[in-house]
Amino acid sequence: MSHPSRALRLLAVALLLTTAGCTATSTTDAKPPTSTSAPQVTGPLCAALPTGTDPGNPTFLASQPVDEALRWIPTLTTFEAALRTSGTLTDLPTGTGVTILAPSDDAFAATFSEDNWDDLMTHHTDQLRTLLKAHLITGTHSIEDLVADGTATTLDGTTVTLIRTGPTARLADRADTVCADYQATNARIHIINAVLGPLPVTADSTGHRAH
């Protein structure tokens, strides 16, 4: 039985109200200060993500730290939780720009069985960090710059090829950008539709374990 003191509880209420107020303010007033910095996200999935003045819209995210920005993108729950709990992102030297090739939740579901993923998340942190580093590139790079270079080296030491395929970019001949060029403080985020890195596919066709 937890019965926090009344003062503490009132404080919690006040904090909650403040938080809610902040969220509302930041989302409605998150118009870019100048049009020059408004990020232009591109790809077929962008329209299905927060747009315009929705909470979590790309313009708002551009002013957020990268870990916060990732939490706002609703299709990145698996990747975001893995980055956060493994500490992979916080290991980067402070002040270093980073480009994140972020596989969507669908991409993870198509790659790992739930058992396998839970096992990676809870018992194999080193393997998990290697997997995540296969999705991080030092420096902030637009998808246009990456495609222009043709290759990029991820933090796990792998070289990834990038080629333009119509309106999107194809990575390592296995993933396509589905919404590229999110910006965050000192960061770029490109959402991709497949998981990179060396781990085998363990997802089964039924896709879901029983309750």
């Binding site: 969220t23 979590g56 706002w72």
Partner: peptide, 8 residues
């Protein structure tokens, strides 16, 4: 609710 379901 405040994030319009963008965040849990």
């Amino acid at each position: 609710e405040t994030t319009h379901a963008a965040q849990y």
